[in-house]
Design a protein around this nucleic acid. Structure first.
Lengths: 227, 227
DNA sequence: TCAACGCATTTTGAATGCAAAAATCCGGTA
DNA sequence: TACCGGATTTTTGCATTCAAAATGCGTTGA
């Protein structure tokens, strides 16, 4: 049941039901989930360790903000993780797994042509997860899952433009090709490029400062602090 | 106080006070730390999310085992993270930070010459952490911390041989040189090599099957399972 | 003799209770 | 009317309590 609670609350955070910067209403969530405070508080501690919420001593939990720095950090790490996944996947992926990803790619393409964004996103995500899974590394999988979930929260503030959509599909063609050729270096490279473009789009769209919910959490000057 | 408890228990796990595979004695720990079960259980949930303990439903917590697969996975990911840190650090490190690492390197060298393993390990760790810190990426830092902590648990089963020690010091010379030249690619490469050697040593030493505490947790056949 | 069953004890997981810290509200004052 | 200070209410953090599951042990019957 503990895992269930963590998953439910994580879903609310990733899907924007609890927007970045918002307070996490302990009482309400307990009522909504039909549980007492103990398991919810345990779940919040776990989500804090994952970086999805911030625990303020004696002042409760807030959904972590998406600042310019944190998004940049997340993309940098995600690049590294996906590149590693690409390298390893090309060494270890089975023909069947390649076929599964090729099938996902085909339906993603169909959704692109039909202009269906939501199912397109779903296939997109499954392809990236498939590559990570094919790397056959449980540590990598769990770290990727954590980072990707946090990045996914930014999609509400980045509109998908037709140009970017076309480019992304082209990049996915290259991804599939590299995978078919088992070209680890090439796959790592195109995955990095793909993510850099996505990141540029998110940064261009700007974030933070636009949500009313970003209030009451002072902007940190992390880049200035040294330790 | 919550963070305090997590840190204390994590220390017990990383330092081998609670060996891999051993049961985490909830009652005892509560008594030892002078707290009730609630905060301890919260801490265990967090450590489970970090991968240091495994929670068995209705059967308590055990310190995670160090299997061949999990150690391999950890090293693979650590390589990726350190390589990324090296790349970023060379772009962002300040002269003062380089000087700090150079100083650490010098004292590490002195400890090597004196044959003092423990302080050598300490300097070694601080150098690697310094590089990661210089990458100036909080997400990277926290993931690295988590992976490095889990890897550190393996050091009790890998004796330091004179040959490996000499090689490690040589590699650290190359690491410092790459850093002084701000050669990101070169630093990433030597860091990967350094870790690969360390990993080979750990794998050669063999692990698991040697600790009585590894008992009663069936060996998983993860490499065979697909999803 | 040994295996299977049943009961008691221990351990786990979640709910509740209680003390302390924040946040809020309200009245008073300048 | 704006601002400050204190009391009240709410929220938070931890301890305690309670129910359910697992474990251990003794008994019984083949």
């Amino acid at each position: 049941m503990h895992e269930e609670v963590v998953a439910r609350v994580r879903h609310k955070l990733v899907e924007g039901e609890i927007p970045p910067g918002a307070r996490v209403p302990e009482r309400e969530l307990c009522a909504a989930l039909g549980i007492s405070r103990t398991p919810l508080r345990e779940a919040l501690k776990v989500l804090a360790a994952e970086g999805l919420v911030v625990l303020l001593p004696n002042r409760g939990a807030r959904a972590a903000r998406l600042t310019r720095e944190s998004v940049q950090d997340l993309f940098e790490v995600c690049e590294g993780l996906e590149a590693l996944a690409g390298e390893l996947a090309c060494q270890r992926i089975s023909d069947q797994q390649v076929a599964e990803i090729a099938a996902l790619h085909a339906s993603m393409l169909a959704h692109y042509r039909a202009g269906d964004l939501i199912p397109y996103y779903r296939c997109n995500r499954l392809i990236h997860e498939g590559i990570v899974r094919a790397a056959d590394n449980t540590v990598l999988s769990s770290l990727y899952e954590s980072v990707a979930a946090r990045i996914r929260r930014a999609r509400f503030i980045t509109p998908m433009t037709p140009e970017r959509w076309t480019l992304a599909v082209q990049e996915h063609e290259a991804i599939l090709n590299a995978l078919l050729r088992r070209d680890g270096g090439g796959l790592a490279h195109i995955l990095r490029t793909h993510l850099r473009h996505k990141r540029a789009e998110v940064e261009r769209a700007g974030f933070a400062e636009t949500e009313e919910s970003q209030a009451s959490q002072p902007a940190g000057a992390r880049r200035l602090s040294s330790a």
